Amino acid sequence: MSHKLFSTQTASDIYLLSLQSKQSRVTIKSLLNIIAFRFGKHERHQDYDWSQLHYENVLMLLSDLSNEGKSPATINVYLSALKGVAKEAWRKQLLSVETYQHIKEIKRFKGTRSIKGRALDLEELNTLIDYCMAQEGVIAMRDAAVIALVYGAGLRRHEAASLMLSDLNVKEGSIKVMGKGNKERINALHDRNLEIIDTWLDERGLAPGPLFLRARKGNRLINQPISGQTIYDVVIRRYKEAGLQRLTPHDLRRTFATKLLENGEDVFLVQDLMGHTSVETTKNYDMRDEKAKTKAAKALPF
C-alpha cells in the first residue's frame, strides 16, 4: 500500500522530498508553482504534466526571466529546480535519457548584480535594541532579544524562529543553530547579547520549548514558536518606531559579517559562523567595499 501511495507522487513532489531543508522546500514549492503556471496555466505544480518538460521550454523560461530583469542568481535557482525535477521525471520514465541530458547540460547564467541591503553602524543597532528595551511589556523585550540574537549570531530568520531554549548554553555563552541542509553550528555570543537574552528569559521563564515564544494581546505568552515572518514583521515595525533608515532581518546578518570582517577576522572563519557552504556567498555579505566607495565619492573635490 505504501508503494502504491509513493507511485502516485509527481516528479516535482519527489524532488521536493529530496530537499533536506524545510525552508528550501517552502521556497522551491512556490517557485515550482510559478513554473507550472507559466508552462501550463496550472496553479499547483502537481497538476502540470512533467513529461512535457523539454530543452526548449526550459530555455524559453530562462530567457523570459532574464528579459523580466531577474538576477542571474534567481534564474539559476529556477534552473536548478528544473534540473532536479527533470531528474526525477527521468527516474519515473516520464522523460527519455536524451531529454534529461539536454536539460542537465544547460549552463548556469553568469553575471552579478549590485548587492542589495546594507550594514548598520553600531549606533543604529544599539538605538534599535535600546528602543525595544525601553518599551513596556514582554513583546518588546522578546523583540529586543530577537534583534540582538539575529545580529549577534548572524542568523537567518528561520534559524532564529526555530531555536529552542535547550539550544542556548548560558554557561558556555553560546547558541546551537540548525542551518540549511541540517548543518549544525555553534556560535559564541557577546556578553551584551547574553545580557539581553537573560532579561528576556526573566520574562519568558525557563520552561522547555521554543526560545522565542508567540504572544497574544495583553502580552500573554504562549508556548509556541514565532515564525520567520514574525521576525521580519518585528524588525520592520521596530525600525520604523525607532525612526531609523529602512532595514530588514537580513541586514542584521549582513552587519554581523561586515563587523567581523572590519575587525580583521578571516573570511573563512566568517563563512563557518554564518553557515555558508561557499566562501563566495560570504563575500556577498561584505559591505565594506560599498562603504569605502561611498566615502571616496563623498571626498571628491568639487
Rank of each mutant, 00 (worst) to 15 (best):
I35A: 09
N33G: 03
Y131I: 12
K4D: 08
I28M: 05
E105H: 03
V234R: 02
S2M: 13
V177Q: 02
A161S: 10
A119V: 12
R253E: 03
I103F: 01
G40R: 05
F212L: 07
E43N: 08
I34K: 05
L59I: 10
I75H: 10
S63M: 06
Y239S: 12
P301H: 02
Q46I: 11
S66L: 03
S96P: 06
N67K: 08
K29Q: 15
E280M: 01
K291S: 02
E68S: 06
A292F: 07
F212E: 02
G117K: 07
R220A: 09
R238D: 01
C132H: 04
E241Y: 02
Q9H: 15
L65W: 01
S278A: 00
K183E: 05
N182P: 01
S12P: 14
E172Y: 03
T248L: 04
S2G: 09
Q46Y: 00
P210T: 02
D13G: 05
K116D: 13
R254E: 15
R142N: 09
T294L: 13
D191L: 14
E280Q: 01
I14C: 10
S12G: 15
L165W: 01
T99S: 15
S66D: 01
H42L: 04
K176W: 03
Q23V: 04
G152P: 13
N193S: 15
D13R: 05
G218S: 00
S12M: 12
K240W: 10
G84M: 09
S227Q: 11
H102I: 06
G181A: 02
G179T: 07
L168T: 03
A242K: 08
S66A: 00
T127P: 12
T27C: 04
A119W: 08
F302S: 14
V234F: 07
S166K: 13
F39N: 03
L65C: 07
Y55E: 05
H158T: 14
F256C: 04
K41I: 06
H250A: 13
K92F: 08
M287L: 11
L95Q: 06
E88A: 10
K283R: 14
P249D: 12
A86N: 02
H276W: 08
Y55H: 01
N76Y: 10
G205S: 04
D286T: 05
